[in-house]
Design a binder for these strands. Structure first.
Length: 589
RNA sequence: GGAGGUGUGGUGUAGCCGGUUAACACGCGGCCCUGUCAAGGCCGAGAUCGCGGGUUCGAGCCCCGUCACUUCCGCCA
């Protein structure tokens, strides 16, 4: 046995015990005579003292070691001399007087410092991920992630849920995200796909009568990466039979409130969580995942603008569009260059421009000022609640463009001005999403959530006449500007499902090929069911204060979807390709 | 596919309006040191400034190209 105690557990109560510890040399302080070594294992730090007088052999070992050497130490737990305690350490009351020590392994000088949480180049961290994972920051994140997942499992187990694994090798469904494909050796020319989510399996489990299912499920999507998107990520996938939207929302809200209270009791959280319809959040925040930690809401001024002398405003309203504004606190002194940048941001979202009004001490400064009466300008200021020192930004355009442009500005400026309270967890529900989105390229309707989502019963009559107006029984959980989960009540009726597929321009033959198993399953007593899938990586990132989910994933990919440590992806031997009946066609240069 | 940012010893950064020997902290090596805990003191090694080209008497700095990383847009049923 290498150790009888961990480096995190010894206290004054253990004084006089003879113990064995093993771990890594976190830091060494060599006084010429005495040597102090902070020995680290996953459980903590313990100070080990090497005394040349009382234990010359151990001391000789102590003087050889360097940072990150693997060391085994035998010694006696001693109370530290009065005044020498270290209150920053759990084990700070004691130290271990080494009687013997053995170097279990040496270590090269690491490419970055392990014993400090200094910023290190991301590429280097990912290349030496096993060293990065030794650092306190990552150990904390991994521990938190473990606790979050453990809490979810226990909580759901107590409520009658069972965890069931679903296949990783499954079937491609070209609708939706790009699939990761796995060639089949036994069926030449055919492929498995890695699951984008266990969607169909969990629905089939409901048909199979399991009623309450969950899984900590890995999902894979071959799309470009973002700070909150990795090619493989983890969801708490759950599904229930005999439920309505309200049941799912209440269950998940209860779970997350309990979880936050247990694991992050200091975080500010308003309960119960506010609920918005999709139309409401788009109108108020210009986003379907608004950061509710700050205001700066989109305010409609179309009625004032309708009578404006400023033709851009007036014409936008007359054309059936909108004029809306946001009040940006303390930005009245923005320079021309900074204002141009804001206008450019609005343009990038499709707006023709943006009109600014700076509320300075000497009056209102606006490029459109000369086209407006003082009364009109005053009306805008009053409507937006502008104070001297604030900057008002208006966009006049079609409803959707106004919403997206101002929503983007709100998000950008909120981040830039640090308006969000870092300690807050602003959860909310967004419900009543539209059922379909128009796909311009393909000239067809796409499912906004996925094709198994049920329409609101009261909107079913619109399916044939006005699909764009149909609302879905789908819902998102948002927090601090992230989409943390989405879910829906599913279709369990064969005919309705077939009708939705048809609306999505999947003809009867392809329905049979792609989804025949689902349609048939619905004919064998499919219960009403629904569920949702909170993203574990995003949630843990928010909880740990990380702004990139890489920092809560042990072995993530870089933005090129490469694993810099393993060097994946990589080429493979020709005989492997031959077995899989594959030929490589390199892209032409 | 597109836009922005970054790239200077092992790590993190500074480097003025283009000017002579590229600075600082940490780390690393050596020596000294018996109560430190970010130990301390002294000494030392370590950089073709991502790469290629251009402008210039002179480029870490300006220009062009390129590569890598990163953030965002597109994309993510």
């Amino acid at each position: 046995m290498y150790k009888t105690k961990t480096c995190g557990e010894l206290t004054a109560q253990d004084v006089a015990q003879v113990v064995k510890l093993a771990g890594w040399v976190h830091r060494r302080r060599d006084h010429g005579g005495l040597i102090f070594i902070d020995l680290r294992d996953r459980f903590g730090l313990t100070q080990v003292v090497f005394n040349p007088q009382t234990a010359p052999e151990a001391h000789a070992v102590g003087s050889q070691v360097r940072n990150e050497y693997v060391l085994e130490v035998e010694g006696t737990v001693e109370k530290r001399p009065a005044g020498q305690e270290n209150p920053a350490l759990k084990t700070g009351e004691i130290e271990v007087y080494a009687s013997g020590a053995k170097i279990l392994n040496t270590a090269k000088v690491p490419p970055f410092v392990i014993n400090k949480n200094d910023d290190v180049d991301e590429t280097l961290r990912l290349t030496y991920r096993y060293l990065d994972l030794r650092r306190e920051r990552m150990q904390k994140n991994m521990m938190l992630r473990h606790r979050v997942v453990k809490f979810m499992r226990d909580w759901l187990d107590e409520r009658g849920f069972i965890e069931i694994e679903t296949p990783i090798l499954t079937k491609s469904t070209p609708e939706g995200a790009r699939d990761y494909l796995v060639p089949s050796r036994m069926s030449p020319g055919e492929f498995y796909a890695l699951p984008q989510s266990p969607q169909q399996f969990k629905q089939l489990l409901m048909i199979a009568g399991y009623e309450r299912y969950f899984q900590i499920a890995r999902c894979m999507r071959d799309e470009d990466l973002r700070a909150d998107r990795q090619p493989e990520f983890t969801q708490l996938d759950l599904e229930m039979a005999f439920v309505e939207q309200e049941d799912i929302l209440n269950l998940v809200e209860e779970l997350f409130i309990a979880l936050v209270k247990r694991l992050a009791p200091d975080r500010k959280m308003k309960t119960p969580w506010p609920r918005f319809t999709y139309d409401e959040v788009m109108a108020k925040y210009g986003s379907d995942k608004p950061d509710l930690r700050f205001g700066m809401e989109l305010t409609d001024v179309s009625d004032i603008a309708a009578a404006s002398g400023f033709s851009v405003f007036k014409n936008a309203v007359q054309a059936g569009g909108q004029v809306k504004g946001i009040c940006v606190p303390s930005c009245a002194e923005y320079t021309r260059r900074e204002l141009d940048e804001l206008i450019e941001m609005a343009r990038s979202k499709g707006a023709k421009g943006a009109v600014t009004m700076a509320l300075r001490a000497d009056g209102i400064h606006s490029p459109a000022g000369k086209f407006m009466t003082a009364e009109e300008q005053g009306a805008y200021v009053e409507r937006l609640g502008g104070q001297t020192g604030d900057l008002l930004v208006f966009v006049a355009d079609a409803r959707k463009i106004v919403s997206e442009a101002l929503g983007f500005l709100r998000r950008e400026l909120g981040a830039r001005l640090k308006l969000a309270d870092k300690n807050a967890l602003a959860f909310a529900w967004v419900v009543d999403f539209p059922m379909f989105e128009w796909n311009q390229e393909e000239e067809r309707w796409d499912a906004a959530h996925h094709p198994f989502t049920s329409p609101k019963p009261e909107d079913i009559h619109l399916l044939d006449t006005d699909p764009g107006a149909v609302r879905a029984n789908s819902y998102d959980m948002v927090c601090n500007g992230y989409e943390l989960a989405s879910g829906s009540i599913r279709i369990h009726d064969r005919e309705l499902q077939a009708k939705i597929f048809s609306l999505l321009k999947i003809d009867a033959e392809r329905q049979q090929i792609r989804f025949g198993h689902m349609l048939e399953a619905f004919e064998f007593g499919a219960p009403p069911h629904g569920g949702m899938a909170p993203g574990i990586d995003r949630f843990v990132a928010i909880l740990s204060g990380e702004d990139n989910i890489r920092d809560v994933i042990a072995f993530p990919k870089n933005q090129q979807a490469q694993d810099l440590m393993m060097h994946a992806p990589s080429d493979v031997d020709q005989d492997q390709l031959d077995l899989l009946h594959l030929q490589i066609v390199h892209p032409s240069a």
